[in-house]
Nucleic acid binder design. Structure first.
Lengths: 354, 354
DNA sequence: GGGCAGTCTGTGAGCGCTAACAATGACTCC
DNA sequence: GGAGTCATTGTTAGCGCTCACAGACTGCCC
């Protein structure tokens, strides 16, 4: 009665009981209306809905989660989220999750370390996520992940298939093959490679595809250069390659440089700049191909041959995997544990006019 | 006693009472340990921590949120999250929020409509976010936002300052001026402009800065072309500009084309490609400048002069604004309602060697 | 030795919701 | 017409936690 609450203070959000009172029913009936229970008389339902509308009532998610033991929240751990690939995956993933009725909370890692990964997962756990998707494609990450015995399902993206954790990935090795075969078919005697960082699984798989294609064709396999995905590192690798291209075999370190497969588009950009600066025309003197098909690639000078990955599909598949694990007491083990998505070669000017 | 739960079924997560029993204390003491209450004997604390460790106990966030009325969750609504700018902002924002002890849930819009915005906010509300950051820099979005009377604080990013909603933004107009002044100082008689979509506030502000700089310098103001941020649209605008450049004033539609300020880097890339294809060298014949400083810009051919925005700072500022509103009964109105961040001109090869 | 502060711990209530069950009334069926 | 069925509604008991308060036990002073 003599509550000060009736003053102008921040009025507490209305509760289900408030709605019930206003509609002249029990709180349980309100609950039934909100959960679309069939056995509610139409007139009652209308009454309740009107009360909800008038009060601006919203169900308290915490109370609901407490009793149903479902937070309907999924966590995502991502690294380098400003890169086109991770960002696209994140986007597709969130959209898919929303469609399934889940909220997605992402934690981003500035730099991968097992400790950072653990902290990120810990952070998410503290908010009661029901499962997580990990988009941290480092070798060490997957290993670290396997150590942690988590009380909820985990799905990896680009985490490789060496561990008994369900995951989604693009067939990076196939991508590497596609590019390499394309360049060999164009008449190059061999193909150089600028790889991604050694601790990235994707980088390794692209190397493997490239190497396999060369070996199958009986071509010489040059020592791959290594970058860190940035244009700058590509630029440096490009300078190195330019040096070899101009020095010729005289320099005695590997075959002639007439074609380069770069492990992502941004590095390819750097490589092309370095080659250009060294007076080596692309594709006239050296053909260059990338990987990812970022939106800019089509407009590089020259337009870049590359491999397109369907990131949105990756995001969707990972959510499907996670949600199926969450909702099915049925589909337990082995049931579509692994999803592999095929990449596609996009041929453009940087490799064509040999 | 005769519960079937003691079978192998999915063992329920341990509760605070379980920990209390194991440690031989009351659940309240466990709670005190977890909240770092000072009045707990060291030996008791140790006992409790050990029990927590052994049981792998985690506090139930829903129960906690229910009683404290704090979900410690923030929502973000973003559009075009695969672009460098929004992605970077999102990243900075999440990191800042985590530092403040909040979880961030993002909802991404494929395309902006007032309805989509409302649905996104609705989605977030259903999960009990305590406040939201809206990164949807459309004119209509801000208007729509003002309509909604939301029961929690809202902060806009790049939402302009026309409405009484706190917000963070980069001084886009200043950016436009910086670029334009730079080009005028380099000796160009005027500067053309390829703008972003008309319904984006940022696009408008960049146009305003460009126009103001031209007018102050007494230069002719050509009709701006309009793109949609994509390289392709820039390419089309570039073709149009190339046509004018080669036709000269004869075509009678505006001044000579010797310098172009493009509203973002990706479109600038398209513009440069079109110019190059038309045989117009950059910067020899036409100088081109962009906006955003995406990581690739430095490696374009030629390296692109552009305006750098500190997206991470934007994200951090928006979180500070939101959190201060959440935690302060003190700082009510007017208190740093607006944060403006200054952009910086980055001069590179695409405008230099006139 | 009684009172009084201060430290540590336990008890009980209740946050807002859903699930299980009970209760009511209307209707059908033989 | 009594039992059985069904639709509709209400009642009650928690979910796991924090808060407010009460108790117990120290030490210290006069």
């Amino acid at each position: 009665m003599s509550q000060t609450a009736q003053s102008t203070g921040p009025r507490r959000a209305p509760t289900m009981t408030d709605v019930a009172q206003r509609a002249g029913v029990s709180h349980q009936t309100v609950s039934r209306v909100l959960s679309n229970h069939p056995n509610v008389r139409d007139s009652t339902r209308a009454e309740v809905l009107r009360a909800i509308e008038e009060l601006g009532y919203r169900r308290n998610s915490s109370a609901r989660a407490l009793v149903t033991r479902r937070t309907l929240t999924l966590g995502v751990v991502a690294c380098n989220p400003t890169l086109f690939g991770p960002a696209s995956t994140l986007f597709g993933l969130e959209e898919a999750a929303r469609g399934e009725g889940y909220l997605v909370s992402a934690v981003t890692l500035r730099q991968f370390t097992p400790k950072a990964l653990e902290e990120a997962i810990d952070h998410l756990s503290n908010w009661g996520v029901e499962g997580i998707v990990v988009i941290v494609p480092h070798r060490a990450a997957v290993a670290a992940l396997a150590e942690l015995r988590l009380p909820f399902p985990v799905v990896t993206v680009e985490g490789g298939h060496s561990l008994p954790i369900p995951g989604v990935s693009v067939d990076q090795e196939l991508g590497g093959r596609l590019v390499t075969d394309h360049l060999l078919a164009a008449g190059h005697s061999t193909v150089w490679h600028v790889a991604g960082p050694g601790d990235w699984l994707e980088a390794g798989a692209r190397v493997a595809g490239w190497r396999a294609a060369l070996e199958e064709a009986g071509a010489e396999v040059p020592e791959p250069l290594v970058g860190d995905w940035t244009p700058l590192s590509g630029y440096r690798a490009g300078q190195e390659l330019a040096g070899r291209a101009t020095a010729g075999r005289a320099r005695g370190r590997g075959p002639e440089v007439s074609a380069v497969f770069v492990a992502n588009d941004q590095m390819a950009l750097g490589v092309m700049r370095a080659l250009r600066e060294a007076g080596l025309s692309v594709p006239g003197r050296v053909a260059v191909a990338g990987f990812d098909d970022i939106p800019e690639s089509e407009f590089f000078a020259p337009p870049l041959t590359t491999v397109r990955q369907d990131f949105a599909a990756v995001g969707q598949a990972s959510i499907r995997l996670l949600v199926s694990r969450l909702e099915a007491a049925t589909a337990q083990a082995g049931d579509d544990e692994r999803v592999v998505i095929e990449p596609r070669l996009i041929v453009r000017g940087s490799t064509t006019s040999l």
